[in-house]
Computed example of a mutant assay.
Amino acid sequence: MENAIEAEGLRRTYRSRTGWLRPRTTEVHAVRGVDLTVGRGELFGLLGPNGAGKTTTIKMLNTLLIPSAGRARICGFDVERQTREVRRRIGYVFGGDRGLYERLSALDNLRYFAELYGVPAREQKRRIAELLEQVRLNGREHERVEGYSRGMRQRLHIARGLLHAPEVIFLDEPSIGVDPVAARELRATVANLAATGTTVLLTTHYMAEADELCDRIAVIADGEIQALGTPAELRHRADGRRVLEIEAYGVPAAALEDLQNLPGVREAAVEERGQVQVLTVQSDADVDVQQDVLRRLDGVRLGRVTSREPTLEDAYVAIISATAKKEPVIV
């Protein structure tokens, strides 16, 4: 299968000078040598924690940043030397509310951007009508964007990015801050893009979204690809584990460190979910650590306690934790 995206040894380093009398140059290595190939028509996921290098990688691939080293090609065109050809073939959609004119209707927004993107006038009406139907905004296109929900705005963002019929579209956390119903509609829209032959590179923090949509996933951390494979292949990273989830209120850092040292425990992490903390403990499948964990949490107010099979999110946590410990990750 021919590749739509190719990256070889892609790096991005930021340099800054501090001090006046004794100036000092510091370097931040945001991306440290990314090798990546995405096939035409593939829906590819790029996952990683904040600051891992996801957005920097995307911006180098879509010509918004110049790589410090390495090479990248989109549909065979070099992102540095053939910028114009690359930009004709890509669309870029980012999460958030920026990039639309709120006092204009959706229709007027799309007309404006169609002119900017060089869509021929004779094709604009047909193309805009097709996209409004594709993102399920037909019937609402005459309303001002300022009255749209966040989910509707994100779908309009996607329509805007597709106006010039790009071969590759970059979706940078498109469902961020979107309610569950709107997120489901967005996932359906994204899945339809890949089904019609558009190559999609998706970044997201929602593991269930990546699991449902992506053909393959790369996990990036510390500026490097740490794991790459299908969702099923990545889940193997958590094979042989059991997951214990505990609702809690105020887990002290010392207790978390104590849990990580229990026999059989692989990982322990706390996530804030509204007013509740969710403590997730991954352990060897043949070791029942529940009693020991609850004993260590004596004095902490607890809620529901559940034991379950590992998910892609658990595998992701295992990969990121192994990276922090500088352990090799094999998928």
Score class of each variant (00 low, 15 high):
5 I>Y: 04
8 E>D: 07
11 R>T: 10
21 L>Q: 06
22 R>D: 11
23 P>E: 13
29 H>Q: 13
34 V>S: 07
37 T>M: 10
37 T>E: 14
39 G>E: 15
48 G>D: 11
52 A>S: 14
53 G>R: 00
56 T>Y: 00
58 I>V: 15
61 L>Y: 08
65 L>G: 03
71 R>Q: 15
71 R>I: 08
80 E>H: 05
86 V>A: 00
86 V>S: 00
94 F>Y: 11
95 G>F: 06
100 L>D: 08
100 L>M: 10
106 A>Y: 01
110 L>Q: 07
111 R>S: 03
112 Y>F: 15
114 A>I: 02
122 R>I: 01
128 I>F: 00
138 N>W: 10
141 E>A: 01
143 E>F: 11
146 E>G: 06
157 H>I: 13
160 R>N: 04
164 H>V: 09
168 V>S: 04
171 L>M: 10
174 P>F: 09
178 V>P: 03
183 A>Y: 08
187 R>M: 13
198 T>D: 02
199 T>H: 00
199 T>L: 01
206 Y>I: 00
209 E>H: 01
212 E>Q: 14
219 V>N: 00
224 E>T: 15
226 Q>A: 04
233 E>S: 08
237 R>F: 12
239 D>T: 12
245 E>C: 07
246 I>Y: 07
247 E>F: 14
257 E>T: 15
266 R>H: 13
269 A>L: 15
285 A>T: 03
291 Q>R: 13
294 L>V: 06
305 V>M: 09
311 T>Q: 11
323 T>K: 12
327 E>G: 04
328 P>N: 06
329 V>Y: 03
330 I>L: 14
